[in-house]
């Protein structure tokens, strides 16, 4: 086995174990911390694919910003295993079956997709994930989706400001 293969299997095992722990930990804070571990493992996979820019952006945006917001909310709501509502066992089984079927369909779609047949991932080579190529592609081939996504972000930002804006009667401090 080469070092790349060892790293690949290690990262895959870490990602799967982390994802399982997200589901089965009782404490929501622990779930969030395990989710951060999963994001790190996925970033490791990006690095193996030589997509360093995607790897670091994944860490900055998901692990660094979104997960911090999750932590904020969970910490301030003070959830813990005692206050969590006990779910019905039948509900859990039904959820497992429907979720499993969805996963089967996804796996089948990916496996039978014509574009993915007989393709292997380019490990350690390939340069599509490097920042130079990514920037060129985003601003030439995919300029329209890129701009539409930025309009979406702008509207989300404006929405957040409108919701967060204080009523005129409220006191001005935090």
């Amino acid at each position: 086995m080469s070092t790349t293969e060892i790293l690949f299997w290690f990262l895959s095992a870490l990602a799967l174990a982390g994802a399982t722990m997200v589901l089965i930990s009782k404490n929501p804070i622990h779930s969030i911390l395990w989710l951060i571990v999963v994001f790190f493992a996925i970033s490791g996979h990006y690095v193996l694919l030589n997509a360093q820019f995607l790897a670091i952006v994944n860490i900055i945006v998901y692990a660094g910003a979104i997960m911090v917001l999750f932590l904020f909310v969970v910490m301030l709501m003070n959830l813990n295993s005692d206050t969590e509502p006990q779910k019905n066992n039948w509900l859990k089984i039904a959820g497992a079956i429907s979720g499993g079927s969805l996963m089967l369909i996804m796996v089948d779609v990916v496996r039978s997709a014509a574009e993915l047949q007989n393709k292997t991932a380019m490990v350690k080579e390939g340069n599509i994930g490097l920042i130079k190529n990514l920037g060129k592609v985003l601003f030439t081939d995919y300029i329209v989706p890129f701009e539409i996504a930025s309009v979406l972000f702008l509207s989300a930002m404006v929405g957040a400001v409108v919701i967060g804006k204080k009523e005129s009667g409220e006191p001005a401090n935090m």
Binding site: I60, A63, G64
Partner: peptide, 18 residues
């Protein structure tokens, strides 16, 4: 000497919050 050096620093700084 990685080609995303400055972004790496931002990534680590955003981890510092934890």
């Amino acid at each position: 000497d990685i080609n995303i050096g400055v972004l790496f620093i931002f990534g680590v700084v955003s981890m510092g919050v934890y």
